[in-house]
Computed example of a mutant assay.
Amino acid sequence: RNLYTMLPQEEALNILVEFLNVHGYTKVKGIPLETIRLLASIVLKENVFVYGKIIYQQILGGAMGSSFTLTLANIFMWKWQKKLVRRQDMTREYYGREYIIENANTWHPNIKLEYKIGKSLPFLDILLTNINGTLSTSVYHKPAAESYVVPFISDHPRHVFEKIVQTNLRRAIKYSSTFQSFNDERRYIKSTFLYNGYPSTFIDKIFRKNFSGYISSRSFLSFIDNEDQFLHMRIALSGQPSRQQSQVEMRIATLTTDSDHLIEELDKKQEFPIQEKTNPNQFQNKLIIHYTHEKRFNTRKRDLHRIFEQTFANTPILETKLIVGNRNQKSTMKELIRKRPRKAILKNKPKANENRKKRHHQLHPKNQRNNNPIRNKHRHHLHP
């Protein structure tokens, strides 16, 4: 079960108010607890979704992608764990005992803890495996998880698809402690993206781009086929120092050099930090709202200011200056003419024949002179 979708809404809201009261809050940034509960109720209960052309409203739990649901779930478990902690104080028993967990699962119908004992255990998105006393890690996929990512036909920029593939590939490199587990995850990644409409050439291109520093440029494969290359890439990606780097760092640490004067100079530099000049933000503590001017919106500015003052009365939000402005409705001429044409376009162009004659005269000036009938006539009289 997922905790976020199993939270009882009214009980969770009551625990939220109790949590604030226990920690001495009567207001949070000037907002009363009743208002906080009302706002939290709107965020929690006003969630709808469409399935099978039918609109449903969520009546249990909260939205999965909401940061408020995460905070509310932690506060809800704060209340639940208080009873468990009191039981541990009385019995002086550890949390991990099986019958304690089984007993705790009877306290609330929606909160069920799971325990697992074996050679492999999942922790978040990592699978830990004990192989003859050696721990290995790999990427963990929930059994109910579907092979779904952002479809390639979705309206996203191209770099978004590339980053999604890179993120999955980097996670596979970091989490896979063996070359075999990495290859298994690499095949899973490629099949997942192929299932979601990603072209095979696009996936191979990103694979080759990420592995470019570790595979030969003459290789026709778009992935690593050598365990040493994989280990070298994993060390470089995880930021862990290699064996040679560790030895160098140990030698540097054991050197006894007189570096007191360097420390003093560093302290002097830190005593006088250079303060960069920053231009003041002219829009700080200002809320600007624009709307298109129409006759029926004549009182819109006054109404917005009145609602703003009534809603946030006696709160620090009133320190923010509300600016309401309007835009004029564009006329038909402005809608049709977006940009003024260049001056070169507005000038009259010379006729094509005149341009052709000028160009011909520039290219053949002698022929133009010899073909002149007047010049030929005078030449005939001078030389009969």
Rank of each mutant, 00 (worst) to 15 (best):
N2C: 06
P8A: 03
Q9S: 02
Q9R: 06
E18T: 14
F19W: 09
L20F: 15
N21R: 13
K27Q: 15
T35I: 12
R37T: 11
L39R: 08
A40M: 14
I42A: 10
E46K: 12
G52R: 08
Y56W: 11
G65T: 12
F68Q: 05
M77F: 03
W80E: 11
L84H: 12
D89V: 09
T91C: 00
E93Y: 04
Y94Q: 08
G96P: 02
I100W: 03
I101K: 04
A104H: 07
P109W: 05
L113Q: 10
D125I: 01
L127K: 06
L128V: 15
N130H: 04
G133A: 03
T134R: 08
S136W: 04
V139K: 01
H141A: 00
K142V: 05
A144L: 08
E146I: 07
E146F: 00
Y148S: 07
Y148R: 13
P151A: 02
H159T: 13
H159D: 14
H159I: 12
V160Q: 04
V160T: 14
L169A: 01
R170E: 13
R171H: 06
R171C: 04
A172E: 02
S176I: 03
S176H: 05
T178F: 00
F179K: 02
Q180V: 13
Q180P: 02
D184E: 15
Y188H: 13
S191T: 15
N196W: 01
G197W: 04
T201S: 12
I206Q: 05
F207I: 01
F211I: 08
G213W: 05
G213E: 07
G213H: 06
I215S: 01
S219R: 06
S222E: 06
Q229D: 13
L231T: 14
H232M: 08
R234D: 05
L237R: 01
S238R: 06
Q245R: 10
Q247F: 08
E249W: 10
T254V: 05
T254Q: 08
D258E: 15
S259G: 08
H261T: 14
L262Q: 14
E276W: 12
N279M: 06
N279F: 09
N281E: 09
N285M: 07
I288S: 03
I288K: 09
H290G: 10
K301H: 07
R302E: 15
R302Y: 06
H305D: 08
T311D: 03
F312Y: 15
A313G: 02
T315G: 02
I323Y: 05
K330V: 10
K330F: 04
R340T: 15
P341I: 02
K343N: 13
A344H: 08
R356T: 14
K358F: 13
H361W: 10
Q362E: 15
N376I: 07
H378M: 11
H378K: 13
R379N: 09
H383F: 11
